[in-house]
C-alpha cells in the first residue's frame, strides 16, 4: 500500500481518549478532529491535561482508553511512522544546553535524515534571527531565542504536523506576538499546527480552539463560534475601589457571575433579563445607581462583547 494513501484531510483526530495517573484522571473521554492546514489551539489552565494529550498524540505515552491518529496513522500501532512526520516542541526547553545553536540544529537535522540546507527556506525566517548567535551554547540564550531555536529544530525536517506544547509560556509579549506571526506563516506551508497555551488572548489567533479543563473539552469550535454561543450579556465595571467593587457586585442579585479581568470587573447578566437592548440599558442603569449608593466614585459601567476568557469562565462554571 502506498504510504501517501494514509494521508487524509484530517491531520489529527482522537476519540474518547482517557488517561489516568494513579488516582488522578488527567484526560476524560477527549475527542477532537483537526483538518489539515489548521491551527488548532488547546486552551486551558495548568494541570488541565494539555501536556498529557500532547504526549499521547506524539506517541510518547499510551492512552488508557480511546483511539487517536495523526496523519491517518494510529498512535499505538504506527508510532514509528508518526515519529517520522511530526515536529514536537515540549513545554520545557528540551535541547542540548551544552551544544551551540548551530550544533543543535545540525544534530536534529541529521536525526531526521535531512540537512539544514534541504529545508532552510522553511526555517529561514526564524533561524535568521538567531543565526548571529550560532556559535553560542543553547543554554546561554535568552528565553525568546531558546524558543526560536526549539521551533527551528522542530521544523527542520518539514513536519506535516507540528505539536507545540505551551510555546509562549514565560515569553515576553513582543516575542509572543512575533511567534504567532511565525505560526501563521508556517500554516501557509500547509503544516498543521496543534498548539497549547494558558493565555486566552492567543485563542483568537487559532482557526479552531478546544477549551480544556480537568481533562475534558468544555467545547471545541472556532473562536468566533464559541463567543457567538455565549448566552449572557456582559458588562464591564470600574471604580476607585476595585476590591470593594467586586464584593458589592457579587452581592447584587442582578449579577449572575462576576470576575476580575485585569483592570476591570466583568459581570454577566442572565439572558432572561436582557431580552432587548432597552432591558439591558435599564439593568446597567440599575447597577450603576446601586454602586453609587454603595459610595463608589469614578464609576464606569458599560456593555462589552465577551472574549474567549469570558466564555471559558462561563463554561467552566457549569
Amino acid at each position: 500500500m502506498d504510504k501517501n494513501q494514509n494521508i487524509t484531510d484530517i491531520a489529527v483526530s482522537c476519540s474518547n481518549v482517557s488517561k489516568s495517573y494513579k488516582d488522578v484522571r488527567a484526560l476524560n473521554k477527549v475527542s477532537m478532529e483537526v483538518p489539515r492546514g489548521q491551527i488548532f489551539g488547546i486552551i486551558g489552565p495548568d494541570g488541565s491535561g494539555k501536556t498529557s494529550l500532547f504526549r499521547i498524540l506524539t506517541t510518547l505515552i499510551l492512552a488508557d482508553e480511546g483511539a487517536a491518529a495523526v496523519d491517518g496513522f494510529d498512535v499505538v500501532a504506527d508510532y514509528r511512522e508518526i515519529r517520522k512526520r511530526v515536529g514536537y516542541m515540549p513545554g520545557r526547553f528540551s535541547l542540548y544546553q551544552d551544544l551551540t545553536v548551530e550544533e543543535n540544529l545540525n544534530f536534529f537535522a541529521t536525526v531526521f535524515n535531512t540537512s539544514i540546507k534541504e529545508n532552510y527556506d522553511l526555517v529561514k525566517d526564524i533561524y535568521q534571527q538567531i543565526e548571529p548567535f550560532k556559535n553560542r551554547r543553547a543554554g546561554k540564550l535568552s528565553g525568546g531565542m531558546k524558543q526560536k531555536l526549539a521551533l527551528s529544530c522542530a521544523l527542520i525536517h518539514r513536519p506535516s504536523v507540528l505539536f507545540l506544547d505551551e510555546p509562549t509560556t514565560g515569553v515576553d509579549p513582543v516575542s509572543r506576538k512575533e511567534f504567532w506571526g511565525m505560526l501563521k506563516k508556517l500554516q501557509k506551508e500547509n503544516i498543521t499546527i496543534i498548539v497549547s497555551t494558558p493565555y486566552m488572548d492567543e485563542a483568537g489567533l487559532c482557526d479552531k480552539i478546544g477549551l480544556i479543563q480537568d481533562g475534558e473539552f468544555l467545547t471545541t469550535d472556532t473562536p468566533r463560534g464559541i463567543i457567538g454561543k455565549y448566552p449572557n450579556k456582559l458588562i464591564a465595571v470600574e471604580s476607585n475601589d476595585m476590591h470593594q467593587l467586586l464584593i458589592d457586585l457579587r452581592a447584587n442579585e442582578l449579577s449572575k457571575d462576576c470576575f476580575a479581568f485585569g483592570d476591570r470587573h466583568h459581570v454577566s447578566i442572565d439572558h432572561a433579563l436582557t431580552t432587548d437592548s432597552a432591558a439591558t440599558k435599564d439593568i446597567i442603569r440599575e447597577i450603576k445607581s446601586f454602586l453609587l449608593n454603595k459610595g463608589h466614585k469614578n464609576l464606569i459601567v458599560e456593555e462589552i462583547e465577551p472574549g474567549i476568557e469570558d466564555c471559558f469562565m462561563q463554561l467552566s462554571q457549569k
Partner: peptide, 10 residues
Amino acid sequence: GTMEVLLVSP
C-alpha cells in the same frame, strides 16, 4: 527532557 524530543524522531 531531551529524551522526549529524541523519542519523537525516526
